Amino acid sequence: MSTVRSPYFKRLRSSAPKKSKSNAPLTPALDSKKAKVTRTKVKLEPQDSFSGKFTGTKSNSHETKAYVNRKEVKQENPKWEPVLWKKQLANIRKMRQSKDAPVDTMGCEKCKGENYSEKDKRFHTLVSLMLSSQTKDQVTHAAMLRLIEHGLTAETVSRIPDEQLGKLIYPVGFWKKKVIYLKKTAHILKEEYDGDIPDDIDGLVKLPGVGPKMAYLAMTCAWNKVVGIGVDVHVHRIANRLKWVKSRTKLPESTRKELEDWLPQSYWREVNWLLVGFGQQICLPVSPRCSDCLNKDICPSSTAKTKMHK
């Protein structure tokens, strides 16, 4: 049999790569393929009509495109709230069942004259809130009784001499400044609101001597509209002691914003009343009665925790 090879075979053999003496891989085609796999890129692009699944299509350039709805991928962080707040609040409700704190009998809702119109009663609520700043409920209530007996409307306050008004409200805290605030507020209400009080927060806080706490409580107690939490020194103090704020707050207004951020609105009406009375009887500013508190084992600031909870 003839062993003569065709010219085509000789040309093909001569064009083949020569064997290298180096330690090059024996299967360059396979290595090249692996290199392409390692360089594969994945691009995430939104698709208008998303079916809820990832779908891929491979292109000629070895790039895989996966389509995904960004709204499906984005996960919102859960809303922050104190871990034990429901249990703590339930315990405070139990401690407030007797309703015998000063706020229960002498708070702003108890400072209304009987033989007055609804408009004048709303004015009474606002005046009691203005007098209550830096003043105990007992002192505020006594001053309100004197004012009501004298005749308490926006009209009468606008006409009463400053000296006489001062005698009626003394000894509430900062009584001299409050005389000025009451007279200016009465004039504004008489001229702009027909003797009534504003029915929104913006209008209330524009009145002389009226801050956010008073405005939110006036909306709740006078207008029966719960639009925010009234935070006084008691609510501010207790919210920080219970760690109902993410970090310690220095101002009551900061505490209000923190509470409203997580506390369900259905609790906004009662939380002021609950915490104020609780702060007047148990969670005192100085030397709180932790041993008498039902939250003593679950309050971060408790000084009377039992040994098993320490």
Rank of each mutant, 00 (worst) to 15 (best):
H234R: 03
S158L: 14
A186T: 01
V68W: 05
H234M: 04
S128T: 05
Q97P: 05
F54N: 15
K41Q: 14
Y267Q: 10
Y170V: 11
P288N: 05
D202W: 04
R11D: 08
Q97S: 12
E118Y: 13
K246A: 14
S6W: 14
V42S: 09
L242M: 04
V179T: 00
R248Q: 07
G209T: 14
D292C: 12
D194C: 07
G151Y: 02
E45N: 15
C299N: 07
M214G: 02
W80Y: 07
Q138M: 07
Q281G: 01
K36T: 13
E155A: 02
F50Y: 10
Y193W: 04
R96I: 12
Q281H: 05
R248N: 03
T40C: 08
K86M: 13
A142L: 10
V68K: 10
H187A: 15
P171D: 03
S51L: 12
K65Q: 15
T40G: 12
Q134T: 11
G52N: 09
S22V: 15
P252R: 01
F50K: 09
M214N: 01
K87E: 12
L147Q: 00
L165E: 00
G107C: 06
W244K: 03
I92M: 01
K183W: 01
D194F: 06
E258K: 09
K190T: 05
L207S: 01
G195P: 01
L126R: 00
P252W: 03
K183V: 00
L131V: 06
K305S: 07
H309G: 08
K21D: 08
L165H: 02
T135E: 06
P171N: 06
R93C: 04
P288C: 08
G113F: 00
L251F: 12
C290A: 06
A222T: 01
S117W: 09
Q75M: 14
K58V: 07
N295K: 11
W268V: 04
L26V: 12
P78F: 13
V179F: 03
G230E: 01
A24K: 11
T3C: 14
K21F: 06
K246L: 15
T27F: 15
Y193V: 03
I298D: 05
H187G: 09
T306K: 15
K176P: 02
K167Y: 10
P288R: 10
L12C: 14
I229G: 02
K206R: 13
V103H: 02
H141S: 04
Y267S: 12
F174V: 00
W268S: 08
